[in-house]
């Protein structure tokens, strides 16, 4: 039967968008998520290229004559007790915070996702063991766990990343397991099994690719909380120490001057807040875009 033009048009309409396109389309309609994405783009651009265009002198150069100047046209965020320009220090600090956020989440991803996938895929005893261990692990409050890890490994940037990463492993195990459980018995998995593929092959090529959306959402949101955790540790004196221009450290250094020079704590915190908000907005937007249940 020949399709008349009207029917063809109808078909085209239904096929117009792929699943990915549909997610992207929904994401683009979410103003918050788009705002978050724009902020993050700028932040990434700055963090990746800051070495190329920012004179180091501006970040670490001391100028005691100009110390503790309030925000002005010349020094947007004012200057600290050594006369360093806070704006450039915050700009430079974006590298630390973003790097810590991503590396930390990468650590929990590479541990948490395989564990969750194995637990969800095999079920039974394997699952019980992994999940009970996860329960035990998450019974310790995350910040305490991070503090313990830092005190085991010693204070350094890398260790801070690991500590924050380790403390958010349980979240990834749970998310991945839950997602795997929903696809474990799908027919394409059964089919792969029937073809005699190895379990590892099935988990990585069939199961996990179909569990991506919750993991992506979790990753985005976790980067946000990792940045907060890392700066909290810096604040507790267990993370990056001043004078490194990491935001948490900048803020902690400013705490000594809180009475008279409150801008020293205000601006670094504002930077953290905006970055974290951007990740949260994007993560929330992704969740809504990927969850067809919310499509209304």
């Amino acid at each position: 039967m020949k399709l008349d033009s009207k029917k063809k048009e109808g078909l085209k309409q239904y096929r117009k968008r792929s699943a990915l396109g549909e997610i992207f389309h929904r994401l683009r309609r979410n103003k918050g998520a788009m705002a978050g994405a724009c902020i993050l783009l700028v932040l990434f651009a700055v963090a990746l290229t800051v070495d190329l265009w920012l004179d180091q002198e501006k970040v670490i150069g001391m100028n005691v004559r100009d110390k503790l100047q309030g925000p002005s046209l010349q020094h947007w965020f004012g200057t600290d007790e050594m006369g360093r320009d806070l704006f450039w220090r915050v700009v430079y600090g974006s590298r630390f915070s973003l790097a810590i956020g991503f590396v930390a989440v990468f650590v929990s991803l590479i541990v948490g996702v395989p564990l969750g996938a194995v637990a969800g895929y095999y079920g039974k005893k394997v699952e019980t063991v992994i999940m009970r261990f996860t329960d035990i692990f998450s019974a310790v409050p995350a910040i305490l766990m991070a503090v313990v890890v830092v005190s085991v490994l010693g204070t350094s940037t890398i260790n801070l990343m690991i500590a924050v990463g380790v403390s958010s492993i349980p979240g990834f195990v749970r998310t991945t397991r839950a997602a795997v459980l929903t696809v474990r018995n799908e027919e394409y998995v059964e089919a792969a099994r029937a073809l005699g593929k190895s379990d590892l092959y099935i988990i990585f090529l069939h199961v996990l690719p179909n569990c991506l959306s919750p993991i992506i959402v979790q990753t985005t949101l976790r980067v946000a909380s990792a940045i907060v955790s890392a700066s909290s540790l810096s604040f507790l004196g267990l993370g990056i120490k001043p004078p490194a221009p990491e935001w948490g450290a900048l803020l902690t250094a400013g705490r000594d001057f809180i009475l008279d020079y409150s801008y020293l704590t205000f601006f670094p915190g504002l930077a953290i807040m905006i970055t974290v908000l951007a990740f949260n907005l994007l993560g929330d937007g992704l969740r809504d875009a990927m969850d067809p249940k919310l499509k209304r």
């Binding site: 918050g32 946000a224 907060v228 700066s231 909290s232 604040f235 948490g248 803020l251 705490r255 809180i258 704590t265 205000f266 915190g269 953290i272 807040m273 905006i274 974290v276 908000l277 949260n280 907005l281 929330d284």
Partner: peptide, 14 residues
């Protein structure tokens, strides 16, 4: 979300 995004120590200090 703004509430979630503010680090506790910063909000406290502010």
């Amino acid at each position: 979300l703004l509430g979630l995004s503010m680090p506790n120590f910063w909000l406290g200090l502010m």
